[in-house]
């Protein structure tokens, strides 16, 4: 007997970072740690750390919302070179 049930949070195994054609790059010297990027990220993959905003590229799909909502424009979207 096996129903199609899943274990919690196992989507983390999907590294959606390989969907990306652009990556967010953060100029942490300008970052004011407001948390807008972290709040508005659809993929929960950019975090405000001690150093400032820091993306987790394992999951980042490169949508650019973080760069758009950043009030001090310290995040730039740059093309992925592959």
């Amino acid at each position: 007997m096996k129903p199609a049930n899943g274990k919690p949070g196992t989507s983390m195994e999907n590294k959606t970072g390989n969907w990306r054609s652009e990556r967010p790059e953060v100029d942490q010297s300008k970052c004011i740690k407001c948390g807008q990027c972290q709040l508005n990220c659809p993929d929960g993959c950019i975090f405000v750390t001690e150093k400032g905003a820091e993306p987790n590229y394992d999951y980042c799909k490169g949508c650019g919302i973080c760069a758009n909502v950043c009030p001090v424009k310290c995040i730039k979207m740059v093309p992925e070179e592959k």
Binding site: G9, S11, M12, E13, N14, K15, T16, W19, R20, L39, N40, C41, P42, D43, G44, C45, F47, T49, E54, P55, N56, D58, Y59, K61, G62, C63, G64, I65
Partner: peptide, 30 residues
Amino acid sequence: MVKPELENKELFKSGHTACAGCGVAVGLRH
């Protein structure tokens, strides 16, 4: 290995397959 401070500890996890920029995924996190 991802740094612990970059780990999604929320109840709605990363690795879902919504389109890039999905407004629903943002809402679900909130």
